[in-house]
Nucleic acid binder design. Sequence first.
DNA 1: GCCAACGTTGGC
DNA 2: GCCAACGTTGGC
Length: 152
Amino acid sequence: MRYWLFKSEPETFNIDDLAKRPNKTDHWDGVRNYQARNFMRDDIKKGDKGFIYQSSCKIPGITGIIEIVKPGYPDFTAWDPTSDHYDPDCSPDNPRWVMVDVRFVKKFNRVITLDEIKNNPVLENMVVAKRGNRLSITPVTEREWKTILKLA
DNA sequence: GCCAACGTTGGC
DNA sequence: GCCAACGTTGGC
């Protein structure tokens, strides 16, 4: 089992939104970056766990835990012209983009802030803490995972 | 295949 | 709102 970090803007989608969905489950759509897509297509498996990280907001940081309940399959929003993530080159025959289904596991009592991550010797090398990082899905090591759980 | 220009991300 | 960093695009 592997660990991941899923980034999103909280106004668009956050841990509370996920908790309100039927079965507390939703698809993680809209990823339009090849590296993140390849993680979902090749590496993210059912049963893997992930953190939800909120970006572009007042307090950037980790807000909770999710679990992968369905591994990579075509992101159908790619050929939906009404979607914000519409890609005119895509169709059901040429899906290109991938999504996974995630289920709510837990919301932390507080946000584990980016500032804390950067200042923690175990966490400072996390991809999300690197300057200029824009990757929306990143691997998390077991050591990083456990360290954050202890902080929460 | 190179690389400049451009658009987007995301912390501050 | 600013701007550095990055990924993508497109001319050559």
